[in-house]
Design a binder for these strands. Sequence first.
DNA 1: GTTCAAAGTGTCATGGCATGACACTTGTCG
DNA 2: CGACAAGTGTCATGCCATGACACTTTGAAC
Lengths: 223, 223
Amino acid sequence: MTATAPETGASCLGPQPPGRRERKKQRTREALIDAAFVLFAEKGFDATTVEEIADAVDVSSRTFFRYFASKEDVALTFQEEQVQAVAAALAARPADEPIMTALRRTAVEIARACEAGELGFEPGRFECMLTLVKDSPALMAGSLEHAQRKQALLTDIVARRMGLDPAADLRPHVVTAAAHCGFQSAADAVGRMGGTFATLSEAVDQAFAILENGLNDPVNPAE
Amino acid sequence: MTATAPETGASCLGPQPPGRRERKKQRTREALIDAAFVLFAEKGFDATTVEEIADAVDVSSRTFFRYFASKEDVALTFQEEQVQAVAAALAARPADEPIMTALRRTAVEIARACEAGELGFEPGRFECMLTLVKDSPALMAGSLEHAQRKQALLTDIVARRMGLDPAADLRPHVVTAAAHCGFQSAADAVGRMGGTFATLSEAVDQAFAILENGLNDPVNPAE
DNA sequence: GTTCAAAGTGTCATGGCATGACACTTGTCG
DNA sequence: CGACAAGTGTCATGCCATGACACTTTGAAC
């Protein structure tokens, strides 16, 4: 094995993605995200062009679109991780918790993680994102659409937890949608009424408290 | 009509918009909407270009944008009337009804009106719209964004009804958002589970029943 | 090391949405 | 009829997004 063979056997290196190519790719991707956020913060989302972002990283705008499907996409990457985190956190909650209680604890947990920057992006960036989404209609639309698509994933988890068939029963859909609204309302509130809530997690907790007061009991035939 | 004078004096005619210009404008606008829906139904939203819509009415695409801010806009005109109708219907409900009950009745009422084609567009067009929105991401985004913006209007009404200050209290926002989610979930459900719900109003009633079971009691300090 | 295939990238070109500028037509009023 | 304003068409521009093709880099095989 002193010869040429070992190179192919990357088996012992394990953890890292084997190639250098992968790493380079990852670096480009992150550089694009960084540059995008700097420019967005500077000039606003709409006023920033894809070309500027690409130029800042010294790639062509065509390349930008090989990493991100759209300009909105680059600003909303974090939401992907956020949804995954929510799904994982919800699955980890004890099965005997009432559904809205479980969702409330999950939501608060995630909100705290966002504030602490534990989801793969710095805490400051999260705030920045909230601001951007708040005052760019295009981003708002993208964000809502994204959330809408990801909601199906959570609905399945919620339905399983409630022991209901999501294809036949409205309840899991309404519950999930309400939870999403709660989070959204809380995020809005933090931006809107500056003084009232110091942190997102606080607002989230309060929003879900409101929901919990009645969506809690899943066992009623509804009419 | 023997003389020339009467023409200027439109004062006595009253109800109709005085000018012929206004009427022509209105006709063009409606023609654009009609043509758009025909084409959308034929080829789908994304595959239809603004130019095709404009050509069908024999105006330039530049003119199209003088009537509608975007291609989404023309498909979502009805939502404007819908929001107005909701606001009016909600304001008309007895003041002693619990908020979610009032919202439920309002929502069902509006859903029925939509089905019956009582909101300024034919019933068939409403169904068509639901379908379009359902399977065009772009339209979905536009619809959500539109709804988001209009939600502020309803929040004010809800807050007044609850005797709360929307600038300082989360509750009216959460309630309004939940109501909107209920309507949305119902609309989705009608499209998704074909057999379960015959009509939108039925689904809306059921979705709001779920919400009503606990968001009903506004009198608790929430933590 | 040389060679090869694949992945990543740049350049060019296209198409659609959206908007600004300006001139022309058409209605409206005096 | 003539002046004025509203509505429209045409031309031009900018940006987003995508397809096609050629060139470079990377990783692996000989």
